[in-house]
Structures are given as C-alpha cells and as structure tokens.
Design a protein around this nucleic acid. Structure first.
Length: 254
DNA sequence: CGGCATGTTTCGCC
DNA sequence: AGGCGAAACATGCC
C-alpha cells in the first residue's frame, strides 16, 4: 500500500479542504473508534499534516492510516488513480470514511480501502514514530538504527525507527547506497550510514516527483522480473526478510 | 485454485 | 524489558 510518499501526495491534495468545516460524516465502525462521527462533525479543518505514513486533518484531529490498499479521493478526484496492487476500480462499498463539507452530496474526503487493513483514528499518537524520512540525516539515522541487530531492511521498515519508508522505498534506498539488506543495522559503519542517509534524502524526492513509491529503479516490473541490475549487471535477487519480499543486487550491495 | 500484495499488530521466545 | 521473527489480519488480483 501506500508508503510515506503516497501519504505526502494525499496530504498535498487535502490542502484544498483546509478552511472548510465538517458538516456530516460517515465511517465504517470496523476501522474507527467508537464515537468517531460525533467527535468530528462540526469541526473546522484548520490544517493537514503528514508524519511518516500517517496523514492528520487538524481540527477534527482525524488520523488516516492507509494500510496496504487505502486511498484518498478529494472532492471526487483521486490524486493517485490506482495503486500498484489493486485494480483501477473505485467501489463505494470499499469506502471506510466519508467527510462532507460545503457540498452535501459529494464527499469532500473519501477514504477507500478494499482490503480494510487501514484505520481511521482520532488524535493519533505520533510521538511513537521515529524520525520522518524527510528529516533524516546521517547522525539521526545512526541514532535510530545503529543499536539494532535485525537486518537493516527490517529496521528501515520499523516506523518507530524511521517513519515513512515502506517495502519498496526501503529496497530502493539500500540499492542506491550499495548496502545488502540482510546486514545487521548495527554493522553499518559511518560511511555506510552516510550513504544510506544520502539515498533517503536524495532519491525519495525524485520518486515523489515521478509519482510515488513505484517510480524507482526497483519498479514493480523490475521486482517481478529481476532483470540484470541496472547499475552493474549482476543478478537481482529476491529474498524474504522480516516477512517481506526484498529485492537486491547480489553484486554491488555488500 | 494457489499464491502474492506499497502495512501494522499480536504473540511467543528469548 | 525490549528486540526479534513468525503469524494473523482482510480481500482483491494474477
């Protein structure tokens, strides 16, 4: 599902509802806390933020957690028309949240999630999240992952350590920094931490401009086909690390 | 039909 | 106590 980059795209799109007031709401009670509707109706939306993969509508203090297949539609328009692992269908029966503002017929915000692993929260606790991927520096990265013995790939996916990286972006930045995803995070030296921080700071904005997490060198097509590595021609490999599929180059990632 | 999927939470075991 | 790996969650798609 969406990673931090997709959350950022939706945060940006949701700026158009800032300044409006929630006049009505509907929510799937299976993915939201009790009393949700009463808590948000009547609240002015005063801002929209993103921390890691979480988008927050300030005012009603709504937290949007996208899970694997959550997506957002703003005023009837989907900023991301389809996710990689879903069809282009937009089935209203998959709606988990509808927020109405000025228009009583068209929801200002729809949270649509076929797989229903996403969640809608009130006043989410963001203090548990690690350093946001947009704020990563070599020093902060080392502090966040340096004491961890787990594979660096797994630690990058741990939202308590670094917030916003998902499976595709983690593989991407490891590819760019030349680090084997199996390596214990604690085994990275200063130079490697620097290279990893640089990849996070430099490559993710490029992917964001191109449209999101699936616009990297290790695109979904590459992840599936595993052609020779675009950097050195070595075989790309697929392994399961931390329960997720990792794609990496057996040549330049050491 | 079997297997896989951009994620998070829970459980059992150190 | 806290880190780690595996399983569970839920459902569409290839």
């Amino acid at each position: 599902m969406p990673e931090g980059l997709e959350a950022e795209i939706w945060r940006s799109a949701l700026e158009s509802v800032v300044g409006r007031t929630v006049t009505a709401a509907w929510v799937d009670e299976r993915v939201s806390p009790s009393g949700f509707v009463d808590a948000v109706v009547g609240a002015p939306i005063v801002g929209v933020r993103r921390v890691g993969k979480v988008v927050v509508l300030d005012g009603p203090d709504i937290g949007l957690h996208f899970g694997m297949t959550g997506r957002i539609v703003v005023d009837g328009v989907a900023p991301i028309d389809r996710l990689q692992y879903s069809s282009g269908r937009d089935d209203p029966s998959w709606d988990r949240l509808r927020l109405y503002t000025d228009d009583r017929n068209v929801p200002a915000v729809r949270f649509n999630d076929p797989r229903r692993l996403g969640r809608v929260s009130i006043d989410p606790d963001l203090s548990v999240l690690g350093v946001d991927f947009t704020a990563v520096t070599a020093k902060r990265l080392a502090a966040a992952i340096g004491a961890r013995e787990a594979p660096v790939k797994s630690v990058l996916l741990d939202q308590h350590a670094v917030a916003g990286l998902g499976n595709m972006c983690a593989d991407e930045v490891l590819w760019w920094s030349g680090i084997d995803p199996h390596r214990p995070a604690s085994s990275l030296d200063g130079s490697e931490n620097g290279a990893l921080a640089r990849a996070i700071r430099q490559r993710l904005p490029v992917m964001l401009r191109r449209g999101g997490s699936h616009r990297g060198t290790l695109s979904p097509e590459v992840r599936t086909a595993c052609p020779p590595c675009a950097r050195d021609g070595s075989p790309l490999r697929r392994d399961t690390i931390g329960g997720r599929t990792a794609v990496w180059c057996s040549g330049h990632q050491r």
